[in-house]
């Protein structure tokens, strides 16, 4: 999986890696722009979630609106991550380039990570634009007390999405039913991540599970940053979980891809 880059000096390898990451991110953004699924996830879904959450609610204050808006933004970000990661390798398989991507000179994890990064960046921007327009149309006030902290939270969100994308991408290397698997993952995480449903409503085992989802902590950090005093402890937990996802994703993807290459079974999926 390392390729011939191992012969280059460490700094050169780092720059090459960043270059591959950015090129793949750019490719994925170009591909997403021509894909209709992104419209479904980043345009239809935020509008529907926002209306379903806000309209029946009696509390339409700025604080409540902010909590809902952040919850919807994170839910949509997660759905886009799951679908984005799914589409990355599904497209490779459909085009017959999966085996080449996984057996090429460039580390396949950089390709998957870069594509996940591109998907996460573009889908989050589209989702935020949709949310802004819908909130304005509904005349729903929201708070932006600490814009800098919100930006930091979003950078961690995109990093987290890219790392999780690598984990989900691993599934696509071993099964042809990856689309069903990624679709299955959408609602459990939205439900247990506490983005729209407070996690204190869950029984203890589920609330512990909820604590392992970075989006739950990002929700807390983004909401507290938007309404007043940012909870940096929540941000730190989210960063730690993101690092754990990335390490897990790099290990799992590498291991699964290596096994598939060794068995020569890539074209079977």
């Amino acid at each position: 999986m390392i390729g011939t880059d191992v012969l280059l000096p460490r700094r050169q390898r780092l720059w090459n890696g960043i270059g591959v990451l950015l090129v793949c991110a750019r490719f994925q953004m170009a591909e997403i722009r021509s894909s209709w699924i992104i419209i479904a996830v980043t345009v239809f879904q935020p509008i529907v979630f926002l209306l379903i959450t806000l309209l029946p609610s009696a509390d339409r204050s700025a604080a409540a609106g902010t909590r809902v808006a952040v919850g919807v933004a994170l839910s949509v970000s997660w759905a886009a991550t799951a679908w984005g990661a799914a589409s990355v390798l599904r497209r490779e398989r459909a085009m017959g380039t999966l085996a080449r991507a996984l057996a090429g000179l460039v580390d396949a994890r950089l390709i998957a990570l870069g594509k996940g990064l591109g998907a996460a960046m573009l889908s989050n921007v589209w989702a935020l634009a949709t949310l802004a327009v819908t909130l304005i149309a509904l005349q729903q006030p929201v708070s932006f007390a600490h814009p800098g902290a919100l930006l930091v939270g979003y950078v961690v969100l995109i990093a987290s999405g890219s790392a999780i994308g690598l984990l989900i991408g691993s599934v696509f290397v071993v099964t042809r039913y990856g689309a069903q698997v990624s679709a299955f993952l959408t609602f459990p995480v939205i439900l247990l991540g506490g983005m729209l449903i407070p996690s204190n409503l869950f029984p203890p085992p589920l609330s512990w599970l909820s604590a392992l989802i970075s989006l739950r902590w990002l929700q807390e950090f983004l909401v507290t940053s938007a309404v007043g005093s940012p909870n940096y402890l929540a941000l730190e937990v989210a960063v730690l979980l993101t690092v754990a996802y990335a390490v897990g994703g790099i290990w799992l993807f590498g291991r699964i891809a290596q096994k598939a290459r060794r068995n020569g079974s890539l074209d079977l999926y």
Binding site: P56, F184, F187, P188, L196, P198, L201
Partner: peptide
């Protein structure tokens, strides 16, 4: 995948209804 996804989806909508009203 399909049944659990739909169950989670339904539970999510029900809990959202609880949070709202």
């Amino acid at each position: 995948t399909i049944w659990p996804r739909l169950i989670f989806q339904t539970v999510f909508w029900v809990m959202l209804g609880y949070v709202a009203a």
